[in-house]
Amino acid sequence: MASRTFKQDMPPKGGFGPIEWTKGVPKPKWSGYKQFSVFTGFTLASWAIWYRGELVRRREMLEMREARIAVYPLIEAERHRLYLMHCRKNRDEENELMKNHPGWITGTLYGKRPYHNVRGRFIDQSCESFYAHNKPKDMTDNTDSKFYHDLWK
């Protein structure tokens, strides 16, 4: 066992350094003005690029909408004929169905009309009335789709 010499633990030569009591904040690479101007410039440039594309997209949407507008009367004319045909079928069916029922007048509920129609306008009847002689599924199929039976949408 070697002889151990006693060594007193002492401060380094020249003493300890000053105590760091401030918070260590790294220095930014760019100044605040520069950061903000770069951010603004980048945003404006992105907006300009987006807006150029947006104008093109709007033109394309307008073109598609116009295609629909142009064809709309053609489809509407056919749809109105089908609608009236179905109304006619409904009335014939009601005549046939209720012929043995005493006191029943077609188009009325025992003589009382379901719609107040003094001016004799065209009746936009309810969906249930329109599909009265069909299966319930026919109605839900139509009401759930965009080709709704309603005449004026």
Partner: peptide, 13 residues
């Protein structure tokens, strides 16, 4: 039940 027989509805023809 919306149209009576007197109401005008065009025929199938």
């Amino acid at each position: 039940m919306s149209y009576t027989n007197e109401d005008y509805l065009p025929s199938f023809e």
